[in-house]
C-alpha cells in the first residue's frame, strides 16, 4: 500500500491537489467552528454560490476571477448586514436562501453561454482539485495563513463576540470590529476556496468537520483540534483513494468525512 501511496503523490498534480485541499480544509475547519456555532451554516453555501457566480461572470467577460468573486461575496455580506440590521421582518436564513437561488440561476445563465458550457456548470459546483496549480497554492497560502494567524491571536475576542456580543460590548470589547473581522475572513475564505474547489467542496469543508468536532468534543479548544484531525486524514486518504479507485477527489474526501461523522455519532451516543 505504501508503494502505491508514494506513487499517487509522486505526480505534481496530486501533490498540488493535496496542498491546495489541505490549505482550504484547514482554514475552513477552523473558521467553520464559528460558522456552525453562530447558526449561519447556510451562509456558507449561499456565499460559495455567489463566489461561483463571480467566477462565471469573470469567465464570460474575461475578467479577473479572484477579484470578481471576492467583490461579489463581500458585497453580498454587506447587503446581508444592511438588510438584517435591527428587527428582522423575515429571517436572515430566508434571505440567504434567496441570494443562493439567484446566484445559482445567474451562474447557470452565464455558464451556459460560456465556452465550457455544461462542463463549466459541473466545474463550478463540484470543482476540480486536480487542476490546482502551484501558483494557486502560493496564493492560498498568502491569503489563508494571515487569516489563520488572526484566529489564533484574537481567539478570545472572536469567541466572546460570537457567544455573547451584547455583554462583550457592554464590558468594553469592540464587537463591531470583531464581527467585521469574522464576516470579512469568512467571505475571503469562501471566495478563494470556491474558485478553486467548487461550491460543494468549499461548503462541505466549512461545515462537516466543525459539525463532527462539536458533536464529539467537550470544549471549544478541542473542537478546533478535532475539526483539524478530521480534515487532514480525510483530505490525504480521500485523494489517495480517488487516485487508486478513479473517483472524483472532492466526492471521495467528503465521503470520508461522512465516515468520520458516523464514528462521531457513535462516540457521542455512548
Amino acid at each position: 500500500m505504501w508503494h502505491s501511496f508514494a506513487e499517487a503523490f509522486s505526480f505534481p498534480f496530486m501533490r498540488n491537489a493535496l496542498w491546495g485541499s489541505l490549505l482550504i480544509g484547514i482554514i475552513s475547519s477552523i473558521i467553520g467552528v464559528y460558522v456552525v456555532l453562530r447558526r449561519i451554516a447556510f451562509l456558507g453555501i449561499g456565499l460559495a454560490q455567489v463566489s461561483s457566480l463571480g467566477v462565471a461572470i469573470a469567465t464570460y467577460f474575461g475578467l479577473n476571477k479572484n477579484f470578481l468573486s471576492l467583490l461579489l461575496v463581500l458585497l453580498c455580506l454587506l447587503l446581508l448586514v444592511i438588510a438584517t440590521r435591527g428587527k428582522e421582518k423575515v429571517p436572515k436564513e430566508a434571505l440567504i436562501g434567496v441570494i443562493y437561488s439567484f446566484a445559482l440561476a445567474l451562474s447557470l445563465l452565464f455558464l451556459s453561454k460560456s465556452a465550457k458550457g455544461e462542463a463549466g456548470v459541473m466545474e463550478s459546483l463540484f470543482g476540480n482539485l486536480l487542476a490546482i496549480h502551484k501558483a494557486d497554492i502560493r496564493n492560498l497560502a498568502i491569503v489563508f495563513l494571515p487569516i489563520a494567524l488572526v484566529y489564533i491571536l484574537f481567539n478570545k475576542e472572536i469567541t466572546a463576540t460570537s457567544f455573547d456580543a451584547e455583554t462583550s460590548r457592554a464590558m468594553g470589547l469592540n464587537t463591531r470590529l470583531w464581527d467585521f473581522v469574522f464576516y470579512f475572513t469568512v467571505g475571503i475564505v469562501i471566495a478563494y476556496s470556491t474558485r478553486l474547489s467548487g461550491v460543494f467542496f468549499s461548503f462541505s469543508m466549512l461545515v462537516i468537520p466543525p459539525f463532527i468536532a462539536l458533536l464529539s468534543s467537550r470544549s471549544l479548544g478541542s473542537s478546533f483540534i478535532i475539526s483539524l484531525l478530521v480534515t487532514i486524514p480525510s483530505v490525504i486518504l480521500g485523494l489517495y483513494f480517488s487516485y487508486i479507485w478513479d473517483f472524483p477527489p472532492s466526492g471521495m474526501i467528503v465521503a470520508l468525512l461522512f465516515v468520520f461523522l458516523l464514528l462521531a455519532t457513535l462516540i457521542a451516543r455512548r
Partner: peptide, 28 residues
C-alpha cells in the same frame, strides 16, 4: 459596567466551561 444579560438569550451549544465564560469578563 458589569452586564448580566437574560439567560435565555445565550446559545448553549457553545462548548464553554463555567470558568471560560467567567474569564470573558476579564478580556478588556
Amino acid at each position: 459596567i458589569g452586564y448580566v444579560p437574560q439567560r435565555s438569550l445565550l446559545d448553549e451549544t457553545y462548548p464553554l466551561t463555567a470558568l471560560e465564560i467567567v474569564c470573558m469578563g476579564l478580556y478588556r
